[in-house]
Each structure stands twice: as structure tokens, then as C-alpha cells.
Design a protein around this nucleic acid. Structure first.
Lengths: 171, 171
DNA sequence: CCACAGACGTTTAGCGCTAAACGAGGAGTG
DNA sequence: CACTCCTCGTTTAGCGCTAAACGTCTGTGG
């Protein structure tokens, strides 16, 4: 059976709208619904994987962002807000939690500035290293169904889509 | 400048890991990080668009699922759980909220069964029709940066990815 | 020198979700 | 009939987020 591929969830949704409310523009469903679904399934799997090692996605996002920035592993709240794609309030809360667990620390604001630097502690540095290498190794396996050319093409099209989306949102 | 496309967020993240922790498997980032980002930006835009018309994404998901199922616009909690990709507890809460606003109603369980049917009210039927046609028309514009062939290819690759993901998760 | 605007960060109210405990009602087996 | 299992749905505790209100500090212009 070459090309065995029945309709999936997104196909069924588009068909159902077509049937129930003809004329409704269903063109976006093929892409957008599948992106939502994939993100949801990935987030669910990631949560379960991280729970097993005593970590959560929000904290890991914070620690990873600091870790990736390179020495001295220190960024202002403002920079964290921009890089993590969440509101400033969310960063305050993430840092509160991580600080309570000794993974990061807030530094005093230098005079003549209002920025609050947040720095990775040694404990945080160790935690993020372990979690990231484990997580990335695991997530690599989720792409096994696509051959390298398909992975590259998918990444390319997503980047193209994101570029437009980002322009529309941020300016 | 043909093919003008500097590195995007995902590229920078992969490069940073490569530089900071050589040997870490960054192959999944090109696809997975972009899916996360796209879903986040789409969810943010959808929330703002729906707030403007007094709706929210969770309620719309519930109402849409009932509406798409066709007459008599009625599904059990169990079916809603399966179709909406959220836990049973979340469905209870969604139905509670929507029932409070008169958009759906719970029906009595038929003897010999434990299922609780949830049914769209006339008010819910009207609300979902308005919201969906408006939302789909708007979201269509988010895909303008991709030509039809690219949209189709992106949808195809996402479907392929989702198939594997779903098999891994659900059995 | 004072007023005022703007940037930065925090606080708070409220939303929606998950996970786990719970209850209640069949269905199967001895 | 009694017992156990299982399914369906609800409840609850707690997490993480957004949006908006709120300080607070910095720089700028009158």
C-alpha cells in the first residue's frame, strides 16, 4: 500500500467545517492546527521527561538561556524577558522560584542603572548541563520518522513561516 | 540579495549550545524549537484576537468541537477529552465555565450509562459560528508569506511528524 | 531645581491546565 | 448474590502564565 496515510486529526477538522459550515476558509487548518497539536504533544512529553529528573520546562528555559549566553552566565531581567518570549512578570516569578532552589541569584543593581542582573549559580550550572544533554538526546529520537532531508526542509519552512509571524507581531 | 536570511532564534540557540557545550546533540532544535516558538506566537495572537470579541481559546475549542460534530451538537465528556487533547479535569472545568455563560448544557445521563452528554445551546451555536469564521479568516493571513506549494509541503511534513509523535505517545 | 515622562522590575488577580485522589455506578466472575 | 474491577466524571492542590496596576529610579526640559 504505497503512500498509506489516512486523514489525520487536522484533515478531519477541516472536512468537518467544510461539511458543517460551507464557505468557511479552512486553508489555514492544515498548518496551524498541526503546529498547535505538535507543540501540545511535545510539551506534554517534555513535562513528563523533566518531572522524572526533578525539573520543569519553565525553570529549564530560564537556566538554559543563562547557560547559553556564555560566561559570566548573567543576564538582566529585561534580556531574559526578550529571550524567553514570556512577560516580565513571568520572569520575576521564574527567578523567584529558581532563587529559592539555589539555581540562580540576583545581584545588586550597579549604581546608575536599574537593571537587575541574574546569575547562574554553580548548582544551577550543573543542573542545566545534565538536563539539557539528556533532553536533547531524547528529543532527537522524536524526529526519527523523518529522514535528514525532510527534517531540513521542515526546519526551513518553519523558519520562513516564523519570520513572517515575527514581523507581524514585533514590528 | 537573493536568499536573504540571516540566522533566526533557533539557529542562534543551536550555535550557542555548540559553542558552550560541544558534543551536545543539537539536531532536534531546528524543528522542535521552531514548533514551540510558532505555537507560542500563534497562541498569543489568538488570545488577543479572541479577547476582542469576548471569547477565549479554551471555550472556543470546546464549542468548536461540539459544533463540528454536527447535529445534535452533543458529545460525552469522554469524547470531548479525547478530541480536545486535554485531561478530563480540564473538560469538567471548561464545561462548568461555558455552562455558567449559557453556551452549553449538561443533559441527564441516560439509564444504563454513566456518560454525561454535553450539548451546544442556541446561544453557543451562534457564538461559535461568529468566532470561528472571523478567526479562520484572520489566521489565513498569517500564512501569506508562504506560497500555496510551500503551505502544502509544510502541512505534509507536519502531518508526517505528528504521525510518529502520536504513535509514540498513544500506543 | 523641580516636574514629568519613560524604562525597569515587582506585585496581584484571575485564568487554565495537570496530576492525583476520590466517588459512584455498571459489568464480570465465583 | 457478593466481590472485585473498571470506567466515567468531578474535585482539589498547586503550577505557570498574562495583563494591568504599581513603585521606583533615571534622565530631560522648562
Amino acid at each position: 500500500m504505497p503512500g498509506r496515510s489516512g486523514p489525520d486529526r487536522a484533515d478531519l477538522i477541516a472536512d468537518a467545517w467544510q461539511r458543517e459550515q460551507p464557505g468557511v476558509p479552512v486553508g489555514s487548518i492544515g498548518v496551524l492546527t498541526r503546529i498547535h497539536q505538535a507543540a501540545k504533544l511535545l510539551a506534554d512529553q517534555r513535562r513528563r521527561a523533566l518531572t522524572g529528573i526533578g525539573m520543569d520546562a519553565a525553570t529549564l528555559d530560564l537556566l538554559s538561556t543563562l547557560r547559553r549566553s556564555g560566561p559570566p552566565y548573567r543576564l538582566s531581567t529585561r534580556e531574559l524577558t526578550a529571550r524567553c518570549l514570556v512577560t516580565a512578570g513571568a520572569i520575576t516569578q521564574r527567578v523567584d522560584r529558581a532563587e529559592r532552589e539555589g539555581l540562580v541569584r540576583r545581584l545588586a543593581t550597579t549604581p546608575g542603572s536599574r537593571t537587575v542582573p541574574v546569575e547562574l549559580t554553580d548548582r544551577g550550572h550543573r543542573a542545566v548541563g545534565d538536563a539539557v544533554s539528556e533532553l536533547l538526546a531524547y528529543e532527537q529520537t522524536l524526529l526519527d520518522d523523518l529522514d535528514p532531508a525532510e527534517q531540513e526542509e521542515l526546519a526551513r519552512l518553519l523558519a520562513l513561516f516564523l519570520r513572517g509571524l515575527h514581523d507581524r507581531a514585533g514590528g
